[in-house]
Design a binder for these strands. Structure first.
Lengths: 108, 108
DNA sequence: ATAATATGTAACTTTTAGGTTACGCAAATA
DNA sequence: TATTTGCGTAACCTAAAAGTTACATATTAT
C-alpha cells in the first residue's frame, strides 16, 4: 500500500526540501552531511527529512548512529499523477474556448 | 518572456487552488461561478485567482464586468521541468547505492 | 437615473509552517 | 569507562498564509 500521510505538493512546496532532494539525487547523505549544505540548523534539516520520508520522497537507512537518506520515487509519482490529469486538456478544449471568448470580447 | 513572479510549487501547494484548476480544466469560469463550488467567500477565491494568474496557471479574459479564468500551461510546465530533473536518476544510481548500503548494514 | 451585479482591495484575525535552542539517548571512539 | 559524535524531540518564537468582513468601483439591467 502506498498511502502517504502528507500532501506531496505541500511537502515539495518548501524550497529547502526541494534543495534536499536535489542533493540526494547526486548522493545519498546523512542528516549531518545534508545540514552542511544549508545555513539552517541540523534539527531543522532533521524535521524536513521526517516530512520528506512521510510523504514518500525518501527512504532512510539506519547504519549505526547515522541515517542515510535515499531518494525514493513514490512522492514524485504523486506529483506526476496529478499533473497528468491535465494532459488531455491543452490541445482540444482550451483553444476553442479561447476563440469563443475572444470573439465575444470583440463583440463579433 | 515567461518569468513568473511566484514559485509554481508553492502556488499549487494549496488544495483550494488545485481544486480551482481542476474545475477550470472542465470549463472556463468566472470568479463568482468558481466561488459557488467552495465554502469560502468570493474574495478568498479572488485572491487565489490572482495568485494562479501571477504564477502562469491561468489567463484571464475580462468581458464586461466578468472575468473568465482560463487554464494555461506555463505553470504546469514549471512543475514538470523540475520533476524531469530527477528522471534520469531512478534506474541507475539509486539501486546500486541501496545495495551498497544494505550490505554495509548487514556487515557484509 | 437607479438598482443590481461582478469584482478588487484594504484591514484585520487566526492558524500553521519553519526556524531556533536546549536537552536526552544510543553508538562509536579513546 | 569516559567522551565524543550523530541524531531525535520538546518547547518556544515569528512570520506568513489563508480566511474573514467591509467597502469602493465599474458594468449591466430596469
Amino acid at each position: 500500500m502506498t498511502s502517504y500521510k502528507l500532501d506531496a505538493f505541500q511537502v515539495v512546496a518548501d524550497p529547502s526540501r526541494r534543495h534536499i532532494l536535489q542533493l540526494l539525487s547526486k548522493d545519498s547523505l546523512t542528516i549531518g552531511a545534508l545540514a552542511e549544505n544549508f545555513e539552517m540548523s541540523r534539527p531543522a534539516v532533521s524535521k524536513h527529512i521526517k516530512i520528506l520520508n512521510k510523504a514518500g520522497f525518501i527512504s532512510i537507512q539506519d547504519i549505526g548512529r547515522e541515517r542515510y537518506c535515499i531518494l525514493k520515487q513514490d512522492g514524485f509519482d504523486q506529483l506526476q499523477e496529478w499533473i497528468d490529469h491535465f494532459d488531455g486538456f491543452w490541445l482540444s478544449k482550451l483553444q476553442k474556448l479561447e476563440m469563443v471568448l475572444e470573439n465575444k470580447a470583440n463583440g463579433k
